[in-house]
Amino acid sequence: MPDDFESQLERARPTLMRFAVLQLRDEQSAEDVVQDTLLAALQGREKFAGNAQLKTWLVSILKNKIVDRIRQRSREAPLPSLDEDEGDGDAFDALFAADGHWQEKPAAWGNPEASLQQSRFYDVMELCMKALPENLARVFTMREILEMETEEICKELAISTSNCWVVLYRARMRLRECLQLKWFGDNVGVGTE
C-alpha cells in the first residue's frame, strides 16, 4: 500500500513542524508536540472522518497540544511583564500628527487573495512573526493562530485584560509594519487597486 495512513502522516510532518516552531519558538518542544500529535492521530485514526482534509484534522490536534504546552510553560516561566518591555508603547504614536490624523495614509494592500495564494508570502509572514519579541508573540499566536478568546489568554497567562489588549495592539502594529516593509514594499502592483 503506497499511500497508507502512516506515510500520509509522515508527509504532513514538515507542515506541522513549521506551525509548531512558530508557536513555541523552540525546535525541541515543537518536535515533542508534533510527535504527540502524530501518535494521537495514529491511535485515533478511526475518529478521522475521511471527508475532512487530513492536514486540517492534524492541525486541530496539534493546536490542542500546543495550548497544553503553553499552559505548562506559563506555570513554569510566567510571561515577563510588559513594564520590562523596552517601552515601545508610544512608538506607534509617531504614525499620527498632533491633531490625530495619519502622518501618511496607510497603503492599499489590495485584494488579499493575490498574496495569500503565494507560498512566498507565508515565508515573509513567518519571518515577521519570528521578529516579534517573545512576550508579544506568545499572546499574539494564542489569539490569532490558536484562535483563543482574549479573556481565556489573559487568564492562562495571568495578565490583566488591559495588558492583553496592549500586547495584542503592539503585535498587530509591528506585524503590519513588517509586512509593509518586507512584502508590500517590493510587491508594488500585486493585486493593488
Binding site: 495569500l116 498587530r172 503590519r176
Partner: peptide
C-alpha cells in the same frame, strides 16, 4: 475616512493570513 478604511482592510488581511498559516 479613506485612510482608516485602508487601515481596517490591512487588519482584516492580517487576520485572514494568520488563520490560514502555513498556507498549502
Amino acid at each position: 475616512c479613506g485612510a482608516c478604511r485602508r487601515f481596517e482592510a490591512q487588519m482584516d488581511f492580517l487576520r485572514q493570513a494568520l488563520r490560514r498559516f502555513p498556507g498549502d
